[in-house]
Write a protein that binds this DNA or RNA. Structure first.
Length: 893
RNA sequence: CCUUCCGUAGCUCAGCAGCAGAGCGCUCGACCGAUAAUCGAGAGGGCGCGGGUGCGAUCCCCGCCGGAAGGACCA
């Protein structure tokens, strides 16, 4: 057994694949009637190389599957890829502009397939076993057809509607975004105070409302001003001494002081109190457009910032939209796909201007009109598109939505029936499901599954029809959804028997519908799988993403969650706990691609690293940390190797000794093994791979390498080959080896199997079951005695080291030890009753007992015995300059 | 502002009520029949801080500080 993992692992992998190892394991379990365990693979995006984060996820899945399988489960694993979506279309469109839809889709598919191959090779190389020949792809026609059928079901249940309410819009990507596609960044924006003179009502021509906003560009769409009905507002003269201006304002009482600090306008006369409710219905003059803005009442008004009067632009915010609806304010959204103002904006010089370049001119305009009351820089977190990194704007265009309220109650109930690992995952998804708005599912993009909706030839109203959608699914099932983009409206109308002139929707479905439908398109379809899955296992960001989209669609389709348990792991971060970004990693020369590591160190080292990591939290990563796990790897490898070497002349069937015949030391190691087996089995069952790693590492380092193997070396080399003591050791080592190889197999998949092969087994270790705990060794009978021995050994060690340093002798085998022990020391009885074992354990020439008054101590001197020529121990020698044992052994051989 | 998680040797982490542990790294030594190994010794820790409950607390409880994640607010 040699190292050289980088060269040897691929050879073993090739053999596994040639023999169909994955399939053999599944079939063996099935033949044994093992219960199933279904881990449903969350599909990674097919748009990049496998980096450490992806590798962590897939290897964790493999650890789960291999350990479940060895614990006696049938574990089918169908990996998949998420193929549609903006990230891919983005790259394709960037390369060459002005492509036809069908061409974009062809190139996008080629792009996705290219990365599917790259990623698949990486995952295989990492030793992840699964049905790699038949993965599920969200771009395959059958999968796409199932997505459309899921949509049909949603329509059938009345869950889909079209509306023009504001959605989060990325002008960078020119599409609506879902909540999960939005990330928040801290930005500084101008926040301004704007005067709206009242034109009707009790204070018409006298007082002005003042609003506060961080988005001046939404002012052209202003249609209302909201005040809180119960708040107390103050009305009266405010003077800005610096500017020499006096105005009559209405400001909420709690904010008058702050308002003064920020705008310079402080009360200069008596202020009258009034309730917000009194202002309802008054019209205020828009600061630069020839229309008025109605004062409405709303509970969401707060006294935290601003003036207590809130600028309402129903086209640019969801609360604004709702308030607008309730009060019949109408809706303006004078912004196009690119984020530029349309003619509807009503101000000539703004038309065609980007909204984010319009803040300054609008502020200037306000100042000219005398409507700008104050201005400040305001630091806040603002949503950004996760792909184009541009700020998100709220914008109203017709979109399709799923009614979340119809699903929410069941979804929340289902969340509490699922096991969340770690437990706080429950709160995370519960919170988002509890508060999420309706799901905007239409995307104005090309690379995706078409939204199977038509528009009436006459009225242009959308036709939401489940049967129609199902027929679209049937039509695309064989040819794929490219049909939607390649054929024209007339063709489709004819195919579906719709009146001529019917047009089809050009939107595609949100990709979260794609992956969120996998429980239907994969779990329900695949004969080996079934829904609900036993486990979903992804990074923690999927609480907002896949876990949620899957839950919602599953509740819509089957009124239940698609999973019984959900496990999440943290992100891979660099050693300073900063996010690892590819561009930065490249700059600093810190590789993050999994390929770099398995090509340099080997997949088993990477797997061992994964097992050693605390997946619940963020996972720090760096090459230094990675190298640290190479050391334990060598220990595992060497331990397996020396065990194998010591077993070279052992035939379990012939040579094994009975349980009752184990000497102390061997009984002890089997007691330890018993604990290790129990602990590892439990740890695997709880997915605590790190505990497995720690337990096995300690077992190999402390119990096996430093003690058991070291001490029994003498027996192995020098006892007569067939002596019962040597055979007992081999029997124990044989058990230890088998258990160790099996317990390591899920983690060190290549190395454990290599050892297994060397041990003479024809079939890979991965077909085996975990070792069973041996009840006969559950009691720690020998362990207590060995603990005493260890104590004595440590005691002697100090004295021996001093003697070696003083040049009294060179090695511990030359030491004659005297233990000075108190009369009641428990070690006394042990030394007297088992002198042979004691001598062997201590690895010294001789020992003697003496009385001690206080603490136990040991003294040493050079032994008078000569070294046995054969075993090099210093013992009483017989005539031939051999010790008694060696003379006998030599006589036999 | 709220919730959760984390804070033990230089590094990565065990332990979780009863004399502070492992691995790596470092220093020094032994072995030379696990040798691109193996064995040993040493240095290195008021177990984040402050209280509390216990005979006894790193471990339980409360508060605080520091770090991370999520939520709320804002959009």
């Amino acid at each position: 057994m040699r190292g050289d993992l980088v060269a040897r692992e691929p050879e073993r992998l090739a053999r596994w694949e040639k023999d169909g190892l994955y399939r053999r394991i599944v079939e063996k379990r099935r033949a044994a009637g093992s219960p199933k365990f279904v881990l449903h693979d969350g599909p990674p995006f097919a748009n990049g190389d496998v980096h450490m984060g992806t590798a962590l996820n897939k290897v964790l899945k493999d650890l789960v599957l291999k350990s479940k399988s060895m614990a006696g489960h049938e574990c089918p694993y169908v990996p998949g890829w998420d193929c549609h979506g903006l990230p891919i279309e983005f790259k394709v469109v960037k390369e060459s502009r002005g492509l036809e839809s069908a061409e974009i889709r062809r190139r996008s598919e080629a792009f996705a397939r290219q990365y599917i191959d790259i990623q698949r090779n990486s995952f295989r190389r990492l030793g992840v076993l699964g049905d790699w020949e038949n993965p599920y792809l969200t771009l395959s026609p059958e999968y796409e057809a199932d997505i459309i059928r899921v949509f049909a079901t949603l329509v059938e249940k009345g869950l889909v509607y079209q509306s023009q309410k504001p959605v989060q819009w990325s002008y960078g990507a020119q599409t609506a975004l879902a909540e999960a596609e939005v990330e928040y960044q801290d930005v500084k924006d101008p926040a301004i105070f704007v005067k709206f003179p009242l034109a009707t009502g009790a204070y018409a021509g006298e007082s002005s409302m003042v609003i506060w906003t961080t988005t001046p560009w939404t002012l052209p769409a202003n249609l209302g001003i909201a005040v809180h009905p119960q708040f107390t507002y103050l009305r009266g003269e405010f003077t800005n001494a610096e500017r020499g201006v006096t105005e009559n304002f209405i400001v909420v009482r709690e904010l008058v002081e702050v308002f003064g600090q920020k705008t310079g306008f402080v009360p200069s006369g008596e202020l009258a109190e009034l309730k917000g409710a009194e202002l309802e219905g008054a019209e205020a003059q828009h600061p630069f457009l020839p229309r008025t803005s109605r004062v409405i009442l709303a509970d969401f008004v707060t006294t935290e910032t601003g003036t207590g009067a809130v600028h309402i632009a129903p086209g640019h915010g969801s609360e604004d939209y709702l308030a607008g609806q309730q009060n019949g304010l109408g809706l303006l959204s004078p912004v196009d796909d690119e984020g530029k103002f349309t003619a509807e904006v009503g101000v000539d010089f703004l038309v065609g201007k980007h909204v984010h370049e319009s803040n300054v001119p609008i502020i200037k305009l306000l100042a000219e009109k005398g409507a700008l009351i104050g201005k400040e820089n305001y630091l806040h977190s603002y949503p950004h598109c996760w792909r184009s990194k541009t700020p998100v704007i709220f914008r109203s265009v017709p979109q399709f939505f799923i009614r979340i309220d119809a699903l929410r109650e069941t979804a929340l109930k289902e969340i509490d029936r699922v096991q969340w690992l770690p437990h706080w995952g429950r709160n995370r998804i519960f919170g988002t499901v509890e508060s999420r708005p309706d799901w905007c599912i239409s995307r104005q993009r090309t690379w995706g599954v078409p939204l199977p909706v038509f528009y009436d030839a006459e009225t242009a109203e959308p036709i939401l029809d489940a049967d129609l959608a199902r027929r679209v699914a049937d039509l695309t099932e064989s040819g794929g959804t490219n049909l939607w983009f390649e054929k024209d409206d007339a063709w489709w109308a004819e195919q579906l028997g719709l009146p001529a002139g019917t047009t089809r929707c050009t939107d595609t479905l949100d990709v979260w519908i794609d992956s969120g439908s996998s429980h239907v398109a994969v779990m329900d379809r695949h004969p080996e799988l079934s829904c609900p899955a036993d486990l979903y296992l992804e990074a923690t960001d999927q609480h907002r993403g896949w876990f949620q989209s899957s839950l919602m669609l599953s509740v819509a389709v089957r009124d239940a969650a698609p999973y019984k348990a959900v496990m999440t792991h943290g992100f891979v971060v660099d050693q300073d706990k900063k996010k690892i970004s590819k561009s930065e990693a490249a700059k600093s020369g810190k590789p993050v691609d999994a390929a770099y590591f398995y090509n340099k160190y080997g997949a088993d080292i990477l797997r061992l690293w994964v097992s050693s990591v605390d997946w619940q939290n963020e996972v720090p990563f760096g090459e230094d940390l990675f190298k640290q796990t190479a050391e334990p790897y060598r220990r595992f490898r060497n331990t397996l190797r020396i065990l194998l070497a010591n077993l070279h002349d052992f035939d379990a069937a012939k040579d094994a000794v009975a349980d009752a015949d184990f000497p102390l030391l061997d009984r002890w190691i089997l007691e330890r093994l018993h604990q290790v087996v129990v602990e590892c089995r439990e740890a695997y069952a709880a997915y605590e791979f790190r505990k497995v790693f720690n337990t096995l590492n300690q077992f190999c380092a402390v119990d096996l390498s430093a003690l058991y193997i070291d001490i029994t070396k003498d027996r192995m080399y020098c006892d007569a080959a067939d002596s019962s003591r040597r055979r007992a050791t081999q029997t124990a080592m044989h058990r230890v080896f088998e258990a160790l190889a099996k317990l390591l197999a899920p983690i060190l998949s290549f190395t454990a199997d290599e050892a297994w092969e060397y041990a003479g087994y024809a079939d890979p270790v991965h077909l085996e079951l975990f070792p069973e705990a041996a009840p006969a060794f559950a009691a720690a009978e020998a362990s207590e005695k060995v603990a005493q021995f260890s104590r004595l050994r440590d005691l002697a060690q100090v004295a021996i080291d001093a003697a070696v340093k003083a040049d009294e002798f060179k090695k511990r085998e030359r030491a004659a030890v005297v233990f000075h022990l108190p009369p009641d020391d428990p070690a006394r009885a042990l030394l007297e009753s088992a002198p042979e074992e004691a001598l062997e354990f201590l690895m010294v020439s001789s020992f003697a007992l003496a009385d001690a008054e206080g603490e136990a101590t040991a003294t040493v001197a050079a032994t008078a015995h000569e070294e046995c020529l054969r075993c090099r121990r210093s013992l009483p020698l017989v005539a031939s300059r051999l010790c008694g044992r060696c003379e006998e052994a030599a006589a036999i051989s």
